[in-house]
Every structure is written in C-alpha cells, then in structure tokens.
Amino acid sequence: MRSLQRFGPRLAISAMTIVLSTPGLATADEATDGKDTTYYISLGDSLTTGYQPDVDKDTDVAYTDQLYAQLKQRIPGLKHIRLGCTAETTESLINGGTCDYPNAKSQLDAALKAMAQHKGKVAYVTLSVGANDILLNCVSPAGTLDRACLNSKSQTMAKNLAQIAGTLRKAGTDNTQFVGSTYHNPFLAAWLQGAAGQQAAKESAPLVKAANTGITQVYKSTGFKVADVAGAFSSDDFTTQVNVPGAGEVPANVAKICQLTWACTKQDPHPNADGHKVIAGTFAAVLAESDAPGGGASPTPSEPATPGAGESPAPSESATPGAGESPAPSESATPEPGTDTGANDPTSNGDLAETGASSSTPVLAGAGLAVAAAGAAAVYFARRRRTSEES
C-alpha cells in the first residue's frame, strides 16, 4: 500500500518557445475562407496541455483539444489558438517568464493580441489556471505547507485570476463565450489506503470545495461562465457506493477519481484521457447552453461576491483591471501558434521539488481556512507543455 508521501508528484518547471506564425501573414485557410474563419483560444497550465505521466509529456488528449474537435463539428471554419503553458501560474500568465511567446510578453498578452487581430471572430475563450500558484511557492522540499505563504498566495491568486478573467472579458465582444473551470480533488485517492486514508480524503473535500467556491465567485464576477469539473467528477459524493475492481465498495467520488485520473495508479493527479473527455464535455455543455436560443454571450460582469466563512477569498479590487495592471491589446499584428513540428518539446531544467505529505494525512488537512485556495492549487502539477494551432 502506497503512502501519501508518494502521492506528491514532482514539479518540473520548463521553459520553451512557442512557434507562432509570422505576424501579419494570413494562413492558407484564412486566405481561402477568411470571412468564415472563427477562433477558439485556450489558456492555462498543464491541464490545458494534456500532460500524461505514463509518457511524461504533453499530449493531444487535453480537454482543450477534445473540446475543439467537438466545436469544430458545429463550426467547420473554427481554428484553435492553443496558448496553454505547463508550469504557468496566475502571475506568470500575466507577466510572463515561464514560456516564451514571440511578439508577446506573456500568455495573457499573446491572447489579447490574438483577440485584437481577430476582433469579432473569437467565438470561445477557455481558462484553467491557479494550480501552480501555491505549489511553486508554499511547499517545502519536505512536503510541508507554509501557512503565512498560503495566506498571502491564496489572496494573490484570487486577485490575479480576477485580473486575467476581467481583462480577457473586456477584450472580447458580445459574440465571445468565456468559460473557466473549477478543479477535481485527487486527494480522494487516499481512501484506498485504509482508515487513516479515508479520514484524510474526507478532510480534503471541504477544502477543495471552498476553493472551488472562491474560484467560481471570481469567474462569475468577471463575466465568465463556469465549467463545474468538480461536479462532473462527483467530488462531494461520499454517499453513493460503487464497486471498484481490486478495491471493493468505495464512494462514488473515489471511484471517479480512480477512473478519470492517474491518482490511484501512478499517484499523479493529472486527468487521464477519459478524464479529459469528461472535462471537455463539461465545457461543451456550458457552451451549448450559451449557443442555445436566448443563451447569449457570457454574462455582464457583476460585483464580486463576498465569500462567507470557509470560502476562498475573493478579490478586494474591481474585477476589471485598471491601467497598468495587465498588458493591453496591441494594434499590431498578433502572433498565432503555428503547426507543432516537434521542435516545441521542452526539456526540464532539473529543478524538482518533492511535495509529498509526511504522514497519512494530506498536507492540506488541518492547515486552516487559508489552505482553501491551496486545495484547488494542489490539483494539477507542472510538467511539460506544447502548443499548436490546429486547422
């Protein structure tokens, strides 16, 4: 039986250059049917790049790729601008420093420039980010969490997420659909380790739920709709019992985490191909509601909600950033991801940090309300990335 210390995966921060098309030059498809070309822009971290631990690299099973395939069936002229960057945090997505984007200083800047160039033609924008904010800053090599760091980083993450979502929403049009995601709970896999693991799994659930509540509030306050990934993974269902081969009767949420992620087999929290399929379907359902008659575009941003006890902190400032907070769209031609030729495969810089717990209890349990945001942040772990624009 494996201990939760082995559950903590390694974090490898990799830097790489995204191959983008030459600014100002239309692609072959645009030249032939430019007026019919629309765009889907995906942003985020390793969740959006489809990292799979069995092959130790990013793959095209990512929910963003599967979602794109579904959307393209309805919109043949749709193109995917895939900007996701493994190891990205909310801060680096705004300011850059993790992945290189030619002619753009950051992932957010690249997205804004693409939205400016294709004004009125960006149909969809999806976002999954925040997982690495805590893990890259507040976890020691021994696997312990710094409570003071958590207090600071959880609030900073919420403010950064509001800035990212608000800036993207402001750059869109009435025809643009914006959707952000909540997170599943991989710590449920501890259930398979006996009584202590079952208690640990139960203790992790309210923390991740509180984090998802805060994330949801931020997205809704900035005009994003929300893909409830936690709900799709039955994250809070300890009541329904399901028979899992080799494990016997387990709660539905435990069964789902074993079925849809690598948490029970490789002690790696990333979704597997089936998990990414479920996430893609969750996003697709939200977008289908928006596309239905009367669905309209993403809602107008509202005032940020004030979280109650136990909920993640919401940003204290306006959701829409002011001058100087984020890069403004450039009027110059924007970069677009080019075809992935294999040259994009990154290499690790060798900076690895062990983040396993020191006992049978997850590092999140008992660390106080400040850890609520870390519940979401601990879901995905940075590995590698690739990016491409698909036709």
Score class of each variant (00 low, 15 high):
146 D>M: 08
235 S>T: 15
321 P>I: 00
381 F>Q: 09
12 A>D: 11
382 A>K: 02
2 R>F: 15
379 V>M: 11
179 V>G: 06
8 G>E: 06
103 N>L: 07
36 D>P: 11
320 T>D: 07
214 G>K: 02
152 S>L: 11
321 P>K: 05
219 Y>I: 03
70 Q>K: 09
5 Q>E: 13
311 E>A: 09
386 R>E: 10
83 L>F: 03
222 T>G: 01
343 A>L: 13
16 M>S: 14
152 S>Y: 00
231 G>D: 06
259 Q>N: 09
136 L>H: 05
368 G>D: 04
350 G>M: 01
350 G>D: 06
137 N>T: 09
181 S>Y: 01
375 G>H: 03
355 T>I: 12
354 E>S: 14
305 A>Q: 14
215 I>C: 02
258 C>Y: 05
231 G>L: 02
376 A>T: 08
77 G>T: 04
174 D>P: 06
248 G>Q: 10
299 P>M: 07
70 Q>C: 06
156 T>V: 14
305 A>I: 13
356 G>L: 07
56 D>Q: 14
119 K>E: 14
29 D>Q: 13
356 G>T: 07
377 A>F: 00
87 A>S: 10
148 A>L: 00
260 L>Y: 08
253 N>W: 03
88 E>D: 11
257 I>L: 12
245 P>I: 00
255 A>G: 09
256 K>A: 15
117 Q>F: 07
228 D>A: 08
202 K>V: 14
113 K>E: 01
152 S>W: 04
365 A>V: 02
208 V>N: 01
127 L>G: 02
102 P>E: 03
322 G>K: 00
220 K>Q: 13
305 A>H: 12
71 L>C: 01
152 S>Q: 12
293 P>G: 04
226 V>Q: 05
81 I>N: 06
226 V>S: 06
326 S>E: 01
204 S>I: 03
49 T>I: 12
385 R>D: 09
140 S>D: 15
187 F>T: 07
57 K>L: 13
15 A>T: 15
